[in-house]
């Protein structure tokens, strides 16, 4: 039998590996603030906050679901449904409150469908939400006659609705504030409430959670409904910002959200997704995109940089997890 041995690393070395995603974010910030004069101005930072808002909302939703041991590929579907409902209500002369509230609540439909498929039909979350995604794509094509965007005339759009997407409050845009609010909500749910603990327990050890008396079905249902509602909110925000509904625009956020959540898992000892980590992941993506646009880098090369940075951050974090797992095995 081998003796248990702790990895011989200094505290600083250990911490630097643990917080590699934070260090990465700061390195990126530092690099851009030196290479571009406009980058570190208040104006640009508030632009970053606005650009980050939608991704942060979707990422928060994804954090909830991944924490429960599943995955939600239909975030884009809920997102688009929210935008579609809100924009069509305004388009048909409805008032702003109805548009926003019904747009957000339309996410419940997607959430209930996912919950039903996963909890009652016991389909694996990946395939169930993939099915929802397929259906969502089709429904959007049918409703928009093959994919025509719906544009609102500036004269017909209530100013309240426009300000929901473009308004400013205390130096930040309304979407940025809402994204922070939803982020805080997810943080409180996962880190402070019993519900969050139960979900975490289920995500890590489904059998143990079930035997331990957690009502798994109800919790999973809530998670998927919550995730879809949060994503629908993001959809309404995008609709209000563009004053238009562009079909299938939500799917753009799917892979980024998954990437951001998993970059965030490097913060945890056990590789568990956390809201804080997801925030950092979402910021890394947004800051990179913003900085590269400021430097005028062609979008051909942006994917290259993003991909390499994901791989480097995760690769470095592996070094630490390795030493942890060795510790556990021995």
């Amino acid at each position: 039998m081998m003796k248990a041995s702790f990895p011989k690393r200094s505290v600083i070395h250990e911490a630097s590996l643990r917080f590699i995603s934070v260090i990465g974010l700061f390195a990126i910030l530092l690099f851009f603030s030196f290479s571009s004069e406009v980058f570190f101005t208040g104006n640009n930072l508030s632009v970053i906050a606005t650009n980050c808002s939608l991704l942060l909302i979707v990422t928060s939703a994804m954090t909830l679901v991944i924490r429960s041991g599943g995955i939600d590929l239909s975030v884009g579907t809920a997102f688009d449904l929210g935008a579609l409902v809100a924009i069509s209500i305004i388009h048909n002369g409805g008032n702003t409150q109805n548009a926003i509230i019904l747009g957000i609540l339309s996410g419940v439909v997607i959430g209930l469908l996912n919950g039903f498929l996963i909890v009652y039909l016991k389909i694996s979350p990946f395939l169930a939400t993939l099915g929802t995604l397929y259906i969502g794509v089709s429904v959007q094509r049918i409703l928009t006659h093959g994919g025509d965007p719906i544009y609102l005339k500036p004269s017909d759009t209530p100013s309240l609705f426009v300000s929901f997407g473009r308004g400013q409050f205390l130096g930040l845009s309304i979407p940025a504030w809402i994204s922070l609010l939803l982020f805080a909500l997810v943080f409180v749910i996962l880190e402070r409430l019993t519900f969050g603990r139960e979900v975490t327990a289920f995500g890590m050890q489904p059998m143990a959670a079930f035997v331990g008396g957690i009502s798994v079905k109800a919790n999973l249902f809530r998670i998927y409904v919550l995730s879809s509602v949060i994503c629908a909110t993001a959809g309404v925000l995008l609709g209000a910002r563009l004053t238009a509904y562009v079909p299938l625009s939500g799917d753009y956020y799917l892979l980024d959200a998954i990437g951001a959540v998993f970059i965030g898992t490097t913060l945890s000892n056990t590789g568990r997704p956390s809201p804080m980590g997801s925030l950092i992941g979402a910021l890394i993506f947004t800051v990179l995109a913003n900085g590269m646009n400021l430097l005028g880098i062609s979008f051909y090369y942006q994917g290259l940089t993003r991909g390499l940075i994901i791989i480097v951050i995760l690769g470095l974090s592996v070094r630490r997890n390795r030493s942890m797992s060795k510790l556990l095995v021995k």
């Binding site: 039909l121 694996s124 395939l127 397929y134 259906i135 489904p206 059998m207």
Partner: peptide, 28 residues
């Protein structure tokens, strides 16, 4: 069928098939 129905019907059929076979429950 109009082409934009296809992916939705595919999605439904796949869900039906997968749902009927999934005896491997999520509580293992």
């Amino acid at each position: 069928f109009p082409s934009y129905w296809t992916s939705g019907i595919k999605g439904v059929i796949i869900l039906v098939i997968v749902a009927t076979r999934s005896k491997r429950s999520w509580v293992k």
